[in-house]
């Protein structure tokens, strides 16, 4: 599995300082996560411009932005709920629907588009059996599109979580996806042992 260093993100400012997902990979209960969110909010409550960083952290924690978390953020940062929702809706990075364990994003920026990004996307839809914005039934993968990840020389690229996969061809996809499935399986077994 190629693990290129993270490249600078593209046009979506929301991705610029995205906090990493919880490293242990363990699912936590919503109460635990909300308690952690309280700690985050306590840290950010007097920081100007805290809304976007807090949303990024929250999404990294929960995998998406649940309504309970958003309402908590609105109250804690003393921002109208309409504004919190407006910011969430403005940036395509933010999502209010639960995502799979791995987020697959296909670049449809100009370079990737002309070098087959669209075909890669079609193949991914077929392989995962979902449309853009959806999540697989086993909650393993979510599919999204992006507009330039800043890796045009490697086009077409896809990103899975923070990994950039370069010069992707539809035929390579099955192996890439299987790599993530195997990692999950190993992780689960390790835990069981």
């Amino acid at each position: 599995m190629s693990n290129e260093p993270s490249t600078s993100p593209g046009d979506d400012p929301a991705t610029a300082t995205a906090a990493p997902a919880c490293p242990c990979g363990q699912a936590r209960s919503e109460e635990e996560l909300l308690a952690r969110l309280d700690e985050v909010l306590a840290e950010y409550v007097h920081v100007p411009g805290a809304l976007i960083p807090v949303l990024q952290i929250t999404q990294a924690m929960f995998g998406y932005l649940p309504e309970t978390a958003l309402r908590k953020i609105s109250k804690a940062l003393d921002k109208p709920y309409s504004e919190v929702a407006g910011v969430v809706g403005f940036y395509s990075f933010f999502t209010t629907v639960p995502r799979g364990k791995h987020l697959v994003r296909v670049c449809l920026g100009t370079a990737c588009y002309v070098r087959g990004g669209k075909e890669v996307l079609a193949a991914l839809k077929h392989a995962l059996g979902i449309e853009v914005g959806e999540t697989t039934g086993d909650r393993m993968f979510s599919l999204d599109v992006g507009r330039c990840f800043g890796a045009c020389g490697l086009a077409p690229v896809i990103m899975i979580d923070d990994d950039v996969h370069q010069r992707v061809r539809p035929a390579k996809l099955a192996r890439i996806l299987d790599g993530y499935r195997r990692d999950e399986a190993r992780h689960d077994n390790g835990e069981d042992a």
Binding site: P80, Y81, E83, G86, F90
Partner: peptide, 20 residues
């Protein structure tokens, strides 16, 4: 200082309205 309304979504899809 009520803040019931705010632009939701983006571009042509923008709607001035309550949250979501």
């Amino acid at each position: 200082q009520v803040g019931a309304l705010f632009p939701q979504n983006r571009g042509f899809e923008t709607v001035i309205g309550p949250a979501f």
